[in-house]
Amino acid sequence: MQVEIWTDINCPFCYLGKKRFNDALAGFENAAGVQVTHRSFELDPTVPAGTSSGVIEHIAKKYGRSLEQAADGERQLGAAANEAGLEYVTSGRDSGNSFDMHRLLHWADELGRQESMLDALYLANFADEAPLFGSDDRLVEVAVGAGFDEGTVRDVVADKTRYADAVRRDESQAQEFGVQGVPFYVFDRKYAVSGAQPVETFAQALTRAWGDRPAVPQMLNPDGDACGPDGCAVPQ
Rank of each mutant, 00 (worst) to 15 (best):
V157M: 01
H38M: 11
A60G: 09
A108K: 02
R20P: 06
P214M: 01
G228V: 04
G85C: 06
K62F: 07
E29C: 05
A196T: 04
A71I: 11
D230K: 13
A24T: 04
E68A: 14
F126N: 05
A205K: 01
P235A: 04
E129R: 15
A130V: 15
A71M: 10
G134P: 06
Y191Q: 00
Q35K: 14
Q180I: 11
F13Y: 12
H38I: 08
E176G: 10
G231P: 02
H58C: 15
F99E: 12
E176F: 10
N125Q: 13
K19S: 07
D165L: 13
R113N: 10
W6F: 08
A60E: 09
G231K: 03
D136A: 11
D170I: 03
L105G: 11
L132F: 02
L123C: 12
V156S: 03
Q197V: 08
A215F: 06
N82T: 14
L43A: 07
H106I: 07
L132V: 10
L220Q: 14
V234F: 08
K61I: 12
Q76S: 13
V167H: 02
S116C: 12
L111K: 11
M117V: 03
G211H: 04
G181A: 10
Q204I: 13
D188Y: 01
G27T: 05
G27E: 06
K160G: 14
D149N: 12
V167S: 00
E83I: 12
W107F: 11
L206G: 01
G112A: 08
A158T: 13
D8V: 07
L111P: 08
N30M: 12
L43C: 08
A209Q: 02
F99T: 13
G27R: 06
S172K: 14
N22T: 12
A80P: 09
F13G: 03
G145L: 06
T37Q: 15
A31D: 04
F21Y: 00
G224W: 15
